[in-house]
C-alpha cells in the first residue's frame, strides 16, 4: 500500500505510539496516509480507538516480522 510518510514507533510503550502518531499527522494534508510501525501490542487496540475518536481512518493493520504496521489516513 502506498503511503506519504512513515513513523517508526518500534520500542516505544504507551502512550508514545499514539501521542507521536498524532504529532506525525499534524503537518500532513487531508487524505494523505501515514504508515506507523509499532512493537507495543497495546497499540493494536489503541490505534483503532485513536482513529475512532479523531475521525482519521485506519485503513489497515498488519503484522510484519514481530511488528505491527498501521496505515492511517488523515481526516
Amino acid at each position: 500500500m502506498n503511503f506519504d510518510k512513515e513513523f517508526n514507533a518500534s520500542g516505544m510503550s504507551c502512550p508514545l505510539p499514539i501521542v507521536k502518531t498524532k504529532k506525525a499527522l499534524v503537518d500532513m494534508a487531508s487524505g494523505q496516509v501515514l504508515k506507523v510501525i509499532a512493537t507495543d501490542s497495546g497499540a493494536v487496540k489503541d490505534m483503532q480507538a485513536f482513529a475512532d475518536q479523531t475521525g482519521n481512518t485506519l485503513l489497515s493493520t498488519s503484522e510484519e516480522g514481530g511488528a505491527y504496521v498501521f496505515m492511517m489516513q488523515k481526516k
Binding site: 504507551c14 499514539i18 501521542v19
Partner: peptide, 11 residues
C-alpha cells in the same frame, strides 16, 4: 501525564 498527553492527542 500519560492520560493527559493521550487525551490531548485524541483532541
Amino acid at each position: 501525564f500519560i492520560l493527559a498527553s493521550t487525551a490531548a492527542a485524541l483532541g
